[in-house]
Design a protein around this nucleic acid. Structure first.
Lengths: 235, 235, 235, 235
DNA sequence: GATGAATGAGTATTCATTCAT
DNA sequence: GATGAATGAATACTCATTCAT
């Protein structure tokens, strides 16, 4: 990365990244950053992404000003949160890639990812609706997708998964599944497992009468575009 | 009990106060009412139910006072919009009940309902999250469910649908499917058809290796409770 | 009614008073006017002068437009109401003037006037705070004052009332007394009688140790000015 | 019980959350807080408690957000203003309790309290109608009444005040008196002194022909109830 | 004349974001 | 760097008043 590329940085003053990886924060700053992320995770999960940054700050035990110093806008905070979480999802995908049986590797990934999203309103809201957050979302997804692709590939190679399923279908399916939990949070937070079962049955290849998909899956590039389109500006 | 008396049924026609249908609006008023509804439909579809009534009014080319004259609160406007739409869904269910083949009846209903919801952010948001709207929401759902139940029953009786599928699963499935379209609005607004296919394949009964559902479906009563939990949100 | 008279139509300078008393309203118009006044009296008494004209109109069974045709503004309506009521007060004063005993004439007037005001939030609010209403208020008071003055004079002439009491003191006293009832509406709507007693004891002339008033009473002219100053404009 | 322990009285110090006094505001904040209070006092006095907080803010030269930062709602602002003032009234009552002559102690209190209320529309409106403000209102009154009761008792014990006067009569009288000033603000802001004289003459015991009160005074409990009836008015 | 529809400025309150301390 | 104070545009809703039907 040349210094020219690095110029793409926003305000130019503040935090001038000395050409190279962004200099690490001072230790107390880093601690605050973590606190804020934790507090945000907590309140976003409890009350959705609509909570005010004042609340986040209060919860984190810092001033709002500090939140803004670390995260130039609410969108950025939300995105940072997502990026942090997405790592876990990536980790899940990686682990699942080690599974002896390709099919059950894929299934565990889907199950575990769904578990995460079902239990974390904020995260899901962010991933799905992306009313907050920015390009980092697309980026993080890009990072995830190859891992998922590998899972899919292995399952298909082993003859356990219908061949017309695309890697991009997987995030969709996970979102869909956990959507049902949004709807039935109180009544049946695990309801998504029911629909996962249904779907999995529809993913097997060996069946007689398999119905071809009427619509192609999204291309990886399209996934990114998708994100950008939905980012509704917040005041 | 004459058919006139039957009209006294509480939830059924609260809009008819006492004697005869509410006198029709003056022509100009009716025109504006329509304009407002259209404008609301449009902006709600574009930007979700969060848009302000000022925006709706501006879009309709009327003053906000006019909006409030016709719809005493935002909730009422939203509900009016919803109630109108929900009738169509019910109509779809009724029509589907006439289909010669029970399975394809069910499939057309799901397809058509998904088409509606996929194309109408506001409607879907309302049905799913019901953060706006009032009793009409619960009522409309109540009205829909029995029709859906009939479709399910018929398909199961004809041996075309797995027996452990419950009527309450259907709305979930429709919500789930259209959820995917929320996500990929620009890139592929019809993507849900892909997942419908998958799901349908998982709904057939005659297959080898059918996997039993790990979680029960929601009971009809639970569907209503669900609603109540989310309804009380706005000042 | 000739066709010429009928011409009193909007285009032609509305209701031109043909030099003389304002032509009486058509009978139906008059009926509406009365209805509106009655309705206004009722709701103003129940809920204070803040009720909306829409409410008044609804109560009267007419459209708001009709209210505005008769009373160009809320202020005017309120004033009309006051003028109507003030007649009753004047009547009380006249009757009291007939009493055999001058002192008890004065006392009954004060008592009866206080009874009226204590029982009519709207009327009192209007007279006292005059946040609504206009010159008619001053006018009506002017009309009342001479009658009161006579009561005062008689009582003083008969040696039953301290000589330094001025006629303008009487309205003040009545307002003051009924003020207490505003305060204790629920707990003791008749509490004012208590303070009337006190005051009357302080009005007798024959006592030893009578304390001269430290401040002069208002002059009749000042009473009018008073009114004008308080008329806060309403949107 | 030491005077320090006495502070533990429930209503007495709810404003002190737990440990020590609430940390003092930053200097700029304090300055603005004062500005807001002054501005509020001013406009409330000029135009009553109905003025909008936008107006208050404008008058104070700050944004409305600042007003809301210091006073979470209009009610709170009003109460803050009131609580500050009410202390002065209490202080007056306390001082008056020190007077060598019980009668003149009572008279000075009434006079000084009336002076305060006569010059402060907002304060009076709040005390009288309590359409704004919260528990602080009830509390402050509760705090005042015993002090007043003492004044009354002393005057009665010294034979200078009629025995059937109750402590609750005093606030009524003060309200009544200043009511007259509301009415004659411009013409004669001191007019209430005239009626105070009258009333005082009616309060002496030794007179011939003293008229017993026809209605009992309010009980202290009733005073509070009174308040409650009017408090719940604002959104 | 009567009706009630339309208007829009006004109300209390919230919250992302900026800026003085 | 951290803090929390200040800002003001935005939101849902009301109501006196005007105007088309």
């Amino acid at each position: 990365m040349t210094s020219e590329e690095a110029v793409g940085e926003p305000a130019a003053d503040d935090e001038v990244p000395a050409a190279g990886p962004p200099r690490p924060l001072r230790r107390d700053a880093e601690r605050n950053r973590q606190r804020i992320l934790e507090a945000a995770a907590e309140v976003f999960n409890e009350r959705g992404l609509e909570v005010s940054l004042d609340d986040v700050a209060r919860h984190a035990g810092v001033g709002v000003g500090t939140v803004y110093r670390r995260f130039p806008s609410k969108e950025d905070l939300v995105e940072a949160l997502f990026v942090a979480r997405i790592e876990s999802v990536a980790a899940l995908a990686e682990q699942a890639g080690q599974a002896a049986d390709p099919w059950s590797g894929l299934v565990s990934f889907m199950t575990e990812a769904a578990e995460m999203l079902a239990g974390d309103v904020g995260l899901r809201q962010l991933l799905m609706f992306a009313t907050y957050g920015r390009d980092g979302v697309a980026y993080a997804r890009r990072r995830n997708l190859p891992l998922v692709a590998r899972l899919v590939k292995r399952a298909q190679d082993s003859g356990q998964l219908r061949l017309d399923l695309q890697p991009t279908d997987i995030p969709f399916i996970i979102f869909m599944l956990t959507d049902s939990t949004q709807f039935a949070r109180e009544a049946s937070p695990e309801i998504w497992r029911r629909y996962l079962t249904m779907l999995l049955d529809g993913l097997r290849p060996e069946r007689v009468g398999i119905t071809p998909f009427p619509v192609p899956a999204l291309l990886p590039e399209q996934m990114e575009m998708t994100m950008r389109h939905r980012t509704t500006r917040h005041r």
